[in-house]
Protein backbone atom coordinates (compact mmCIF):
# COMPACT_ATOMS: atom_id res chain seq x y z
CA UNK A 1 0.00 0.00 0.00
CA UNK A 2 1.23 3.47 -0.86
CA UNK A 3 2.13 5.87 1.97
CA UNK A 4 0.95 9.52 2.03
CA UNK A 5 4.31 10.86 0.90
CA UNK A 6 4.36 8.35 -1.97
CA UNK A 7 0.92 9.49 -3.12
CA UNK A 8 2.10 13.11 -3.15
CA UNK A 9 5.25 12.15 -5.09
CA UNK A 10 3.24 10.10 -7.63
CA UNK A 11 0.78 12.99 -8.16
CA UNK A 12 3.71 15.39 -8.58
CA UNK A 13 5.51 13.12 -11.08
CA UNK A 14 2.30 12.60 -13.11
CA UNK A 15 1.59 16.35 -13.18
CA UNK A 16 5.14 17.04 -14.33
CA UNK A 17 4.86 14.35 -17.02
CA UNK A 18 1.68 16.01 -18.28
CA UNK A 19 3.27 19.49 -18.23
CA UNK A 20 6.41 18.26 -19.99
CA UNK A 21 4.27 16.72 -22.72
CA UNK A 22 2.16 19.88 -22.97
CA UNK A 23 5.24 22.09 -23.37
CA UNK A 24 6.58 19.72 -26.04
CA UNK A 25 3.28 19.86 -27.96
CA UNK A 26 3.42 23.65 -27.80
CA UNK A 27 6.94 23.37 -29.28
CA UNK A 28 8.46 25.02 -26.23
CA UNK A 29 10.67 21.96 -25.61
CA UNK A 30 12.81 20.09 -28.13
CA UNK A 31 12.60 16.31 -28.52
CA UNK A 32 15.85 15.91 -26.59
CA UNK A 33 14.52 17.99 -23.71
CA UNK A 34 11.28 15.99 -23.74
CA UNK A 35 13.22 12.74 -23.43
CA UNK A 36 15.41 14.11 -20.60
CA UNK A 37 12.55 15.47 -18.49
CA UNK A 38 10.23 12.51 -19.11
CA UNK A 39 13.01 10.11 -18.13
CA UNK A 40 13.48 12.09 -14.93
CA UNK A 41 9.77 12.00 -13.99
CA UNK A 42 9.43 8.33 -14.91
CA UNK A 43 12.47 7.57 -12.74
CA UNK A 44 10.83 9.49 -9.89
CA UNK A 45 7.62 7.51 -10.38
CA UNK A 46 9.52 4.19 -10.35
CA UNK A 47 11.53 5.10 -7.23
CA UNK A 48 8.38 6.29 -5.47
CA UNK A 49 6.38 3.15 -6.16
CA UNK A 50 9.29 0.70 -5.75
CA UNK A 51 11.69 2.39 -3.30
CA UNK A 52 13.47 -0.92 -2.71
CA UNK A 53 15.24 -0.57 -6.07
CA UNK A 54 17.42 2.02 -4.37
CA UNK A 55 18.46 -0.31 -1.54
CA UNK A 56 21.85 -1.29 -2.97
CA UNK A 57 22.83 2.37 -3.39
CA UNK A 58 21.38 3.33 0.02
CA UNK A 59 23.47 0.64 1.69
CA UNK A 60 26.58 1.45 -0.29
CA UNK A 61 26.41 5.14 0.66
CA UNK A 62 25.40 4.45 4.28
CA UNK A 63 22.09 6.27 4.19
CA UNK A 64 19.40 5.18 6.67
CA UNK A 65 16.49 5.35 4.24
CA UNK A 66 15.88 5.72 0.50
CA UNK A 67 14.07 8.99 1.27
CA UNK A 68 17.26 10.51 2.74
CA UNK A 69 19.14 9.66 -0.45
CA UNK A 70 16.36 11.19 -2.57
CA UNK A 71 16.41 14.41 -0.53
CA UNK A 72 20.19 14.74 -0.95
CA UNK A 73 19.93 14.05 -4.70
CA UNK A 74 17.11 16.58 -5.01
CA UNK A 75 19.24 19.24 -3.29
CA UNK A 76 22.18 18.55 -5.59
CA UNK A 77 19.91 18.69 -8.64
CA UNK A 78 18.32 21.97 -7.51
CA UNK A 79 21.70 23.55 -6.81
CA UNK A 80 23.00 22.64 -10.27
CA UNK A 81 19.77 23.84 -11.86
CA UNK A 82 19.95 27.19 -9.97
CA UNK A 83 23.53 27.72 -11.08
CA UNK A 84 22.77 26.93 -14.72
CA UNK A 85 19.70 29.20 -14.61
CA UNK A 86 21.73 32.02 -13.01
CA UNK A 87 24.40 31.78 -15.72
CA UNK A 88 21.79 31.72 -18.51
CA UNK A 89 19.81 34.65 -17.11
CA UNK A 90 23.02 36.67 -16.78
CA UNK A 91 23.98 35.92 -20.38
CA UNK A 92 20.49 36.72 -21.65
CA UNK A 93 20.50 39.95 -19.65
CA UNK A 94 23.81 41.02 -21.20
CA UNK A 95 22.62 40.16 -24.72
CA UNK A 96 19.37 42.02 -24.19
CA UNK A 97 21.22 45.08 -22.93
CA UNK A 98 23.52 45.10 -25.95
CA UNK A 99 20.54 44.66 -28.28
CA UNK A 100 18.55 47.48 -26.66
CA UNK A 101 21.51 49.85 -26.78
CA UNK A 102 22.26 48.98 -30.41
CA UNK A 103 18.60 49.46 -31.39
CA UNK A 104 18.52 52.82 -29.61
CA UNK A 105 21.57 54.04 -31.54
CA UNK A 106 20.35 52.67 -34.89
CA UNK A 107 16.95 54.33 -34.50
CA UNK A 108 18.34 57.60 -33.17
CA UNK A 109 16.33 60.66 -34.06
CA UNK A 110 18.96 63.29 -34.70
CA UNK A 111 18.28 66.94 -34.07
CA UNK A 112 16.86 68.59 -37.20
CA UNK A 113 19.47 70.97 -38.69
Amino acid sequence: MLLGIQIVAVCFALTMLYLTNLYYKRKELTRKELVFWQALWIALLGITIFPSILDPIVEQLHFNRALDLLVVLAFIFLTVLSFVTYAKVKRTDERMRLLVQRLAKERAKERPR
Binding site: V100, Q101, A104, K105, A108, E110, P112
Partner: peptide
Protein backbone atom coordinates in the same frame (compact mmCIF):
# COMPACT_ATOMS: atom_id res chain seq x y z
CA UNK B 1 14.56 69.64 -31.28
CA UNK B 2 17.32 67.65 -29.60
CA UNK B 3 18.85 64.27 -30.43
CA UNK B 4 16.66 61.46 -29.10
CA UNK B 5 17.52 57.82 -28.47
CA UNK B 6 14.96 55.40 -27.14
CA UNK B 7 15.49 52.16 -25.24
CA UNK B 8 12.58 49.88 -26.21
CA UNK B 9 12.58 48.61 -22.61
CA UNK B 10 13.66 50.13 -19.32
CA UNK B 11 17.27 49.19 -18.51
CA UNK B 12 18.12 51.65 -15.75
CA UNK B 13 19.89 54.98 -15.43
CA UNK B 14 23.42 53.57 -15.80
CA UNK B 15 22.60 51.85 -19.08
CA UNK B 16 20.71 54.87 -20.45
CA UNK B 17 23.53 57.31 -19.68
CA UNK B 18 26.04 54.89 -21.21
CA UNK B 19 24.01 54.73 -24.44
CA UNK B 20 23.83 58.52 -24.57
CA UNK B 21 27.51 59.09 -23.81
CA UNK B 22 28.62 56.57 -26.42
CA UNK B 23 26.35 58.17 -29.00
Amino acid sequence: RVNVLRHPINLGKGAAVRTGVEF
